[in-house]
């Protein structure tokens, strides 16, 4: 007889109610019970950061959090970033700057970016570097990721000005689910052609 607990939580803006075994890891709950496959398993001991999601707007390791602990909380996964067929500015920037290679750490890296930019909308390169050090990436050597975070900072603050509204508030602002919802309409559509002029530091 397996002990099961009923949990109710908001995931990417939707209320989900399920019964789960207490030992079920949040990452398994998201992936297997909700089909949110963008949360990835990397090390299952909290080091690599691949499983990172937002809980109430803050990054957490979903591989060392039990699903029962998410009861009553608000979770945002990478699936909550894009809306209405449009990328979130962070996604757009990661594409533009090639802030990914295999894509496995990418959802977590982007969620951490959302948090970094909420806490500091115009970070320095060094601040971004230290900020993303919580997330291991084995492919990129981080340089293009840092470029992407800075690019997202630029487009988001430009977007905030042109839209006349703050996309992502500072401090304990709205959850990123709300923030993501607010970014609707910014950034080009996914289908849009994306010719790029490489502006990397190359000679």
């Amino acid at each position: 007889m397996v002990d099961r607990h009923r949990i109710e939580l908001v995931v990417n803006g939707e209320t989900e109610t399920q019964e789960v075994e207490p030992r079920r890891l949040l990452v398994d709950f998201l992936r297997e019970d909700l089909g949110l496959l963008g949360a990835h398993i990397g090390c299952e001991h909290g080091v690599c950061g691949t499983c990172t999601v937002l809980m109430n707007g803050e990054t957490i390791r979903s591989c060392i959090t039990f699903a029962v602990q998410a009861d009553g909380q608000e979770i945002t996964t990478v699936e909550g970033l894009a809306s209405n067929g449009k990328f979130h500015p962070v996604q757009e920037a990661f594409w533009e700057k090639q802030g990914l290679q295999c894509g496995y750490c990418t959802p977590a890296m982007m969620l951490r970016t959302v948090e970094i930019l909420r806490e500091n909308p115009s970070p320095t390169r060094d601040q971004v570097r230290e900020g993303i050090a919580s997330q291991l990436c084995r492919c990129t050597g981080y340089q293009y990721i840092i470029d992407a975070v800075l690019e997202a900072a630029r487009t988001m603050s430009a977007g905030a000005e042109t839209d006349g509204k703050v996309l992502v508030k500072q401090g304990a602002g709205p959850s990123s689910a709300e923030a993501a919802a607010q970014t609707q309409g910014s950034g080009p559509a996914l289908e849009e052609e994306a010719e790029d002029a490489s502006r990397q530091k190359e000679s």
Binding site: L25, G46, R61, I64, F66, Q69
Partner: peptide
């Protein structure tokens, strides 16, 4: 069980196998 940032990794490794967890969150 508070933050669980040390305990849960140990449980995932099955180095810790508590029979009852009291979540104080």
């Amino acid at each position: 069980l508070a933050g669980g940032q040390s305990l849960v990794p140990l449980m995932n490794f099955r180095l810790a196998q508590p029979t009852h967890l009291v979540d104080i969150n």
